[in-house]
């Protein structure tokens, strides 16, 4: 099993305000540390026009990380391809893959927040179609061959991407899934990796993986191309009490501020107690993994016994920017949880 560490957005939220330049400098140190304790890859996350400065352009930051590390994979979790020109994205990714010596892992997603579609002047309701057409264009561009593409949303004539990515035929491509079966089916049909979000129950996960695999097989994709990844929020500590304290101080404030702001809980009032009792929050909190290394191992095992998967992303970074605490959690996870599964 591979372990991906995520997710960094270089945000300065109200609960933990920070100067952006400090965050951009520190994320590189976090990646260096993640490499030193043995994580397989390090992931950033993208959004746009957000009050906390949520990073809108991941590839240059991954380039900085690539130059300061030597073997850790660098991932986008996720690049919002539904908002962008796929040829331009492919160009950035290709250069990044070359200078990182082929370490790019591409997590993609259509995007969902209304402001982003309004900002880029794109119809939100066609985002699914636009996204999969974009992914198709990207694959053509990554081939390094001359290509033309006349689709519903994009049109290119006789272009050839040079440099092409170092990884052949292209860097691994994953798609962030939501709870809908439709999205799971689309990912399977496109033959891309299926990457489950942080807030779904084990039952939803199992159902979606089944739908994804079936759609993939029906479309004729090989079993080994239909990869499954699971993404969970983690608070890990030597004792259960400490882990709960981390949850209380770092994870819950993030949920409170961010998920409400994303519009997951439209009727939210800003009152903490009310919010945490909301069913949406309950599901998110139930899905998170909080405890000692042994407890975390049991929780991951429970998922794995139900649905086989081979990529696990612990999100340890909850925007709290408490460097020592984060490094301690990374170290505990890498030294005590990872070896059990390797």
């Amino acid at each position: 099993m591979e372990f991906w560490l995520g997710l960094y957005g270089m945000q300065s939220p109200r609960v933990h305000p920070r100067a952006w330049s400090g965050l951009y400098n520190e994320v590189v140190e976090h990646a260096e540390f993640a490499e030193s304790v043995g994580f397989d890859s390090f992931w950033l996350t993208e959004h746009h026009f957000w009050y906390d400065g949520y990073c809108p352009d991941l590839y240059p930051v991954l380039a900085t990380i690539a130059r300061r590390t030597s073997k850790i994979g660098i991932g986008t979790g996720a690049s919002l391809l539904g908002l962008h020109d796929p040829l331009r994205e492919a160009q950035q990714i290709a250069t990044l893959d070359v200078i990182s010596n082929g370490r790019v892992i591409l997590g993609l997603a259509p995007g969902y927040r209304p402001e982003e579609f309004e900002g880029f002047d794109i119809e939100k309701k066609v985002r699914g179609k636009r996204f999969y057409e974009g992914a198709e264009v990207m694959k053509k561009a990554f081939s390094g061959d001359r290509f033309s593409h006349h689709g519903e949303f994009f049109r290119y004539d006789d272009v050839c991407l040079e440099p092409a990515p170092l990884q052949r035929p292209h860097p691994p491509m994953w798609v962030g899934a939501n709870r809908s079966h439709q999205q799971a089916r689309n990912i399977g049909r496109a033959g891309l990796g299926f990457w489950e979000g942080p807030s779904m129950s084990i039952e939803t996960f199992a159902e979606n993986v089944e739908v994804f695999k079936q759609a993939g097989r029906d479309a004729g994709h090989a079993e080994e191309d239909l990869k499954v990844g699971l993404f969970r929020d983690i608070c890990i500590a030597d004792t259960a009490e400490e882990a709960l304290q981390i949850m209380d101080e770092d994870l819950l404030p993030m949920y409170e501020e961010q998920y409400v702001a994303y519009g997951y809980v439209p009727e939210a009032t800003g009152n903490r107690r009310e919010m945490l009792a909301h069913p949406v929050f309950k599901e998110i909190i139930d899905a998170s993994m909080v405890g000692t290394p042994a407890q975390i191992i049991r929780k991951i095992e429970r998922y794995r016994n139900r649905v086989p998967f081979d990529h696990f992303m612990p999100r340890i970074m909850h925007m709290s920017q408490k460097k020592e605490r984060l490094f301690r959690q990374m170290e505990l996870f890498a030294r005590e949880v990872v070896p059990y599964f390797k």
Binding site: Y59, P60, A63, A66, A94, L96, I99, V159, E162
Partner: peptide, 21 residues
């Protein structure tokens, strides 16, 4: 950008790479 005889190198990543060194 797709000029004859030249690689279409993406410069933001080149700048990013040396930003930390």
């Amino acid at each position: 950008q797709f000029e004859h005889g030249r690689m279409s190198v993406s410069v933001p990543e080149i700048i990013g790479a040396v930003a930390g060194t």
